[in-house]
């Protein structure tokens, strides 16, 4: 990548020496390839109109409340309870996904079994299946008279639909591919030599796993966890059908935003949305830093 950029620059440098063109090296390296102005202009315009201006409207709208108004809008008991539900259950679901996603990735990379390619393709189902479809399917499965809801209730007394457990299950469904797809390539590229060395030095298989394989995969696992977690916090479609949506108990933040909008409380909706966006960016940032720290610690 660096080499490509260098040769690119060298070539472009020669071209720049022959044809006299306006030098703008402070902004970009000169190049013989045309279309920079056109594509960058289009990209920035489109990006601004679709993404940046509307997101700015969110900030502007919630700032119209003033700091005090914003604070009181996002610290009502109902909002705080919704944040606890959303973040707590997303965390639980991401943790479940970290464990089972790793297991699935491990099995797909290390072992052979009939139908493996089919299983590999199936892992992406939550990416492809519309969330509303997942939502009604899960809610039918785990309803008190559903295929899974009935036996779970009769055998263990566990109610899933319309309880926090149901939300966690929906978020697990949605987040699983993030962990599998981030861990899988790392596991694939793990050099066999390190494991051979560990084994020849007398490590048991479990010791090799714990001290050689796991540290190498851990940054990817944390990334997958973070992605799954972030997706869970914002998830709406797959959750609302199974959640029951009781304020304070099974009401998630995105639903609360929708409710505020339906009551024409635009400023309140904007405030809760801004808070949610802020908190999830903050958590992503922390997890990113954590991941960098781990990577530098386990760098070879």
């Amino acid at each position: 990548m660096v080499a490509a950029a260098d040769s690119d620059g060298a070539l472009a440098g020669k071209g720049g020496a022959v044809t006299v063109r306006a030098p703008v090296p402070l902004f970009r390296k000169p190049s013989v390839i045309p279309g920079f102005g056109l594509t960058l202009g289009f990209t920035l315009t489109y990006l601004s109109l679709i993404v940046l201006v509307p997101l700015a409207a969110l900030i502007v709208r919630s700032s119209s409340l003033g700091w005090g108004g914003f604070w009181s809008a996002v610290t009502t008991p109902r909002v705080i309870a919704a944040f606890e539900v959303s973040f707590g259950l997303s965390f639980a679901a991401a943790l479940t996904n970290a464990v089972f996603g790793f297991l699935v990735a491990w099995v797909l990379v290390r072992y052979d079994f009939p139908g493996k390619r089919l299983v590999d393709a199936l892992v992406d189902l939550p990416f492809a299946l519309p969330t509303a479809v997942a939502g009604i399917a899960l809610s039918a499965l785990y309803a008190p008279n559903g295929w899974l809801g009935k036996p779970l209730n009769e055998l263990f007394g566990l109610k899933v639909a319309f309880t926090p457990v149901g939300i966690a299950i929906a978020l697990t469904f949605i987040g699983l591919p993030f962990v599998v797809r981030t861990v899988q390539p790392i596991l694939q590229d793990l050099p066999a030599e390190e494991e051979e060395a560990a084994a020849s030095l007398g490590a048991s298989r479990f010791q090799t796993f714990r001290s050689v394989i796991l540290p190498a995969v851990l940054p990817a696992l944390v990334t997958g966890f973070a992605l799954s977690f972030a997706r869970g916090v914002g998830e709406y479609g797959s959750v609302i059908f199974i959640a029951g949506n009781m304020p304070g108990l099974t009401e998630i933040v995105p639903l609360l935003i929708v409710i505020k909008l339906e009551q024409y409380d635009y400023a309140g909706a904007a405030a809760v949305g801004t808070a949610m966006l802020g908190v999830s960016f903050l958590m992503l940032l922390i997890l990113n830093l954590l991941q960098q720290w781990m990577r530098s610690r386990h760098a070879r």
């Binding site: 969110l58 916090v233 949305g273």
Partner: peptide
């Protein structure tokens, strides 16, 4: 960026505009 924004917020921003 849009990947890390909740779908509900993606709709909300246009309602606000």
């Amino acid at each position: 960026l849009p990947f890390s924004v909740s779908p509900v917020i993606s709709g909300l921003i246009y309602v606000l505009l």
